[in-house]
């Protein structure tokens, strides 16, 4: 395969990607001017947010327990002073594990959900039927999901962090006899941590619907095609989360975290 023919084959995908980025960005700022039914953003917020709530709470609680357990074991082995574990745990949860693990979970649930829905719309000609009625699939389908995901990723992360702190405090109290009052100590959280966490949530919340919407809309070929595009959406949005985590953490390390 020559580079030219590769480019030629990639051209429709690149065109779709350009539309996705441009329309979603524009749509997010001018909600009223774009073209989707009223209440669609609320419906998607329910779909993405409320229906992932239990999943995020359970997974983040267990991850909170594991992280606290591992840390306490290690600290016991070295210094034996467990009083700082809670404060440090909350700090790292806010700027790193909370947003990133929550987004990894949402990449599987929300990413797969969006790609499966849009992919089966493509292979059953529903996207063409929208076009016949002069509806742009990106304005109509992606923009509401994009806006809903941006809002709900932040909300779910907040709840998830709460669950993880609660579960972590329980683990520390039962397994290592750390007083929960000592454990739940947010004093180490700086403004820089909050800003880092916020940027991560926003970036993940934007990336997941875009990546999985792209995978869903480029599905082709029956039920096998829907399966393939859903798989690609999970893998691509999870990988996107890891790369964004790395990039934002790196930038934060040199800017926000170096401030006292």
């Amino acid at each position: 395969m020559t580079p030219i023919s590769l480019l030629h084959r990639a051209a429709p995908s690149l065109e779709l990607l350009r539309h996705l980025l441009w329309r979603s960005g524009r749509g997010a700022f001018r909600l009223r001017a774009t073209d989707f039914p009223r209440g669609e953003v609320w419906r998607q917020m329910h779909q993405i947010g409320n229906r992932s709530l239990l999943f995020v709470c359970v997974t983040l609680s267990f991850l909170g327990m594991v992280l606290v357990f591992q840390t306490c074991l290690q600290v016991n082995r070295i210094t034996g002073d467990l009083s700082q574990v809670g404060a440090e745990f909350i700090k790292i949860l806010v700027h790193e594990f909370g947003p990133s693990l929550c987004a990894m979970m949402l990449a599987t649930r929300v990413g797969a959900g969006i790609a499966a829905e849009l992919g089966s719309m493509v292979v059953t000609d529903q996207i063409d039927a929208l076009a016949m009625n002069n509806v742009d699939p990106i304005d109509y389908l992606i923009v509401p999901r994009f806006v809903a995901s941006m809002v709900m990723t932040g909300a779910l992360t907040t709840v998830g962090v709460g669950c993880a702190v609660f579960a972590g405090a329980l683990t520390a109290a039962y397994s290592f006899h750390v007083n929960p009052v000592v454990f739940v100590d947010p004093s180490h959280v700086r403004i820089g941590d909050l800003v880092t966490g916020f940027f991560k949530c926003a970036a993940y919340g934007a990336a997941i619907p875009l990546v999985s919407g792209f995978c869903g809309l480029s599905a082709q070929g029956g039920s096998a095609g829907v399966g393939r595009s859903t798989t690609r959406a999970v893998i691509a949005s999870s990988f996107m989360v890891i790369v964004l985590d790395f990039v934002i953490s790196g930038v934060a390390y040199f800017t926000l975290q170096s401030a006292p």
Binding site: F55, F62, M105, V234
Partner: peptide, 29 residues
């Protein structure tokens, strides 16, 4: 049909993620 396959993939990854974090906790302890 095709929507069913999409839903199954979705359910499979969600269940896998849950199973992973639960067994993670168990093995750690």
């Amino acid at each position: 049909g095709a929507p069913g396959v999409g839903r199954a993939v979705n359910a499979a990854v969600v269940a896998s993620a849950l199973a992973i974090v639960l067994s993670d906790q168990l093995i750690t302890v």
